[in-house]
Write a protein that binds this DNA or RNA. Structure first.
Length: 604
RNA sequence: GGGCUGGUAGCUCAGUUAGGGAGAGCGUCUGGCUUUUAACCAGACGGUCGGGGGUUCAACUCCCUCCCAGCCCGCCA
């Protein structure tokens, strides 16, 4: 659900005050345009127990009393805390964990919170012996409210709106996603296209999640009883919702039929016929932010399956229909949909709302993730740069903290993961980290392998400058990263990271993006250095192995009264046009001798 | 304007859920390993725990207030 927020753009409208004086912060708020996702926080907080009046009580929340009742110990892993809260409800099996989002466009990393946060909770509950069903609703009966700037083809490749028939898409504004053709002409609908992308991403991360189409749920009649319930007592529905939304007035009817004439979602129901399970409506304009999607003025009749509940009712409706026990949601829902949803669940539907958990949002390279602005990164893109377990680790971190995924510093994230992994195996002297790793690590990796080998990410990036796998392995061995008794499988797995790091170096075009220079770089050395290089060339020409060359570099430096570092730098300059690199001697020992000799003599 | 959640070392973050030593990794610097070359070891530097006030023998932790960031309080999701 959260991502659906296409909307926030509306925010910009209001602040025309910018001219003003005060650099008051508030107007920064409009920035948000669609930030969709993020990560974050769990709602668990203790404030609730004191309040009684709805609406003012903190939304988040597991009340303190719940936790006291369950005598909950403090856990190092947030998913255990959530699992405690769920168990305290004494839920029926299977326990249902839900997430959901509108298939409004490319699913980015933030949307994945809806799946990953639930995944960890599901995993913990399964470990505790429960049967768990993790579902994900594609809220695809929602109307397309505005055109995304970027789409993704069925392979997950990002493409611009210009690469598809934007005009055709534009004509579908206001229609349910499931009634809009796939811009790529492959899937059954716009909704199906993006839902399948999300499913593919879940598969890539190894998360077993059951995808459900909201449109199908309506079509099957799953929502019938909910719609009946809501419409049978519109007065109560209005009263409850009006406490959260000022706009609700006496004419408000919480049902949005799909216009049988133009196919758009309508907002104006004129009468309800409970006996026949249908409503009369007028296809009026739909306001979306500062724009209007025009209605066709058609007056028609729709059954309870030919329309949808407004989100504020639909969400609790899903809880009831699916028997949801736990649902994570973005911070945007914490103060809006959740409080009203909780109230509607209890007051209108007479059910207990699920255990909630608010997650903070992620940012990408320091900026809000935004589908509309195009500041997004998809799961497939990230998996080109690091292993799935590292990405799962990212989602295992405290949801309450906003986190930035800085692609230029992915090495830091990978290093953190490696340390987290070592902590699991008891190799890190850090109580807190170890406690966290003991609980979370098993759910982060596919397989717990004490013999796994991890090359430091930046070192892997260094290895990426050479193509030959055997050469990479040799260099890794020389640096002591591969034990002598390592299995071939472990070695292959370790070297797989080199490809990721190489791609990262190229994409970031950073200090690791260099390769053996085919041509002699533009260099100049002082006499002593030049003489040392010539001397080294002769040594190499005489035929020595890498280890000998490495030692000789030290010897040569001394003989020519040079700092060892100066000679190394000269060597790196010659071969990589850089000031640093891999262990030079061993590296040169692996190259074609003639090439090395010529290059050391600055001849080629 | 009101509310919610964050604000801990240069960077990434733990620690706050019964108040009592401010921590880790990385980075930087120094020294060592008679091969320093994206390697290892030792050590150092580095923080007014966003600011201020309060409670307390004692506050990163509790209370008040202010600042910063994001979100919600219209619609929609």
């Amino acid at each position: 659900m959260n991502d659906t927020t296409d909307t926030t753009d509306t925010a910009d409208a209001p602040d025309e005050t910018d001219t003003a004086d005060a650099p008051d912060a508030t107007d920064t708020a409009d920035t948000a345009d669609e930030t969709d996702e993020t990560d974050g926080t769990d709602a668990i907080d203790t404030s609730a127990d004191t309040e009684t009046d709805h609406e003012s009580s903190s939304p988040h929340v597991l009340s303190a009393t719940d936790r006291e009742d369950s005598n909950t110990p403090h856990h190092a892993f947030w998913a255990d805390e959530v699992a405690d809260a769920i168990e305290a409800r004494d839920p029926d099996e299977p326990i249902v964990i839900k997430g959901g989002v509108s298939p409004s466009g490319v699913a980015h990393l933030g949307n994945f919170n809806e799946i990953m946060r639930g995944y960890f909770v599901a995993a913990v509950l399964r470990e505790r012996g429960h049967e768990v069903r993790q579902v994900f609703t594609s809220d695809d009966k929602d109307p397309l409210r505005k055109l995304p700037r970027k789409l993704a083809d069925s392979e997950g490749n990002i493409v611009g709106l210009g690469d598809v028939d934007a005009g055709a898409l534009g004509r579908n504004l206001g229609k349910p996603y499931t009634d809009i053709p796939d811009p790529f002409g492959e899937a059954d609908s716009y909704a199906a296209h993006f839902a399948s992308l999300l499913q593919a991403d879940a598969d890539r991360l190894g998360v077993p999640v059951e995808m459900l189409s909201n449109t199908e749920l309506y079509a099957e009649g799953a929502f019938d009883s909910v719609v009946e319930r809501v419409l049978s007592d519109v007065e109560t529905a209005r009263t409850v919702l009006s406490a959260y939304q000022d706009k609700v007035d006496d004419s408000y009817i919480p049902f949005n039929p799909v216009c049988e004439s133009c196919g758009k979602i309508t907002e104006t129901v004129t009468s309800i016929d409970l006996a026949a399970n249908r409503v009369d409506y007028v296809c009026t304009d739909l306001t979306v932010g500062d724009r209007t999607i025009e209605g066709c003025d058609h007056e028609g009749t729709a059954t309870f399956r030919e329309g949808k509940l407004p989100w504020r009712f639909e969400w609790p409706g899903q809880w009831q229909v699916l028997g949801v026990d736990f649902e994570p949601f973005g911070k945007d829902h914490a103060e809006g949909s959740w409080p009203s949803g909780e109230d509607i669940a209890r007051t209108v539907l007479d059910i207990d709302p699920p255990v909630p958990m608010t997650y903070e949002w992620f940012t990408l390279n320091g900026e809000a993730l935004s589908s509309s602005a195009g500041n997004i990164v998809t799961v497939p893109e990230i998996l080109e740069l690091l292993e799935p377990e590292v990405l799962r680790y990212f989602f295992a971190l405290n949801p309450r903290k906003a986190r930035d995924l800085d692609l230029s510093r992915l090495d830091q994230l990978v290093d953190d993961f490696d340390r987290f992994e070592r902590a699991y195996f008891g190799e890190v002297d850090d109580e807190d980290l170890t406690a966290f790793a003991e609980r979370a690590y098993p759910f982060v990796v596919d397989e717990i392998d004490p013999d796994r080998i991890r090359l430091p990410y930046t070192f892997a990036a260094v290895l990426g400058m050479v193509e030959d796998p055997a050469f990479r392995e040799q260099l890794a061995r020389d640096e002591g990263h591969i034990p002598d008794d390592a299995s071939q499988a472990a070695i292959d797995a370790a070297l797989a990271r080199v490809e990721k790091a190489r791609t990262w170096a190229e994409r970031m075009d950073n200090a690791y993006n260099y390769r053996l220079q085919a041509e002699l770089p533009d260099v100049s050395f002082d006499d002593a250095t030049a003489a040392a290089l010539d001397s080294l060339a002769s040594f190499v020409e005489a035929g020595h192995d890498g280890e000998a060359i490495q030692s000789e570099i030290y010897e040569t430096a001394r003989e020519h009264d040079l700092d060892v570092s100066e000679l190394f730098e000269a060597g790196y300059r010659l071969f990589f046009d850089e000031t640093q690199g891999p262990r030079l001697g061993e590296f040169l020992g692996e190259l074609e001798r003639e090439f090395v000799v010529d290059r050391l003599r600055r001849e080629a």
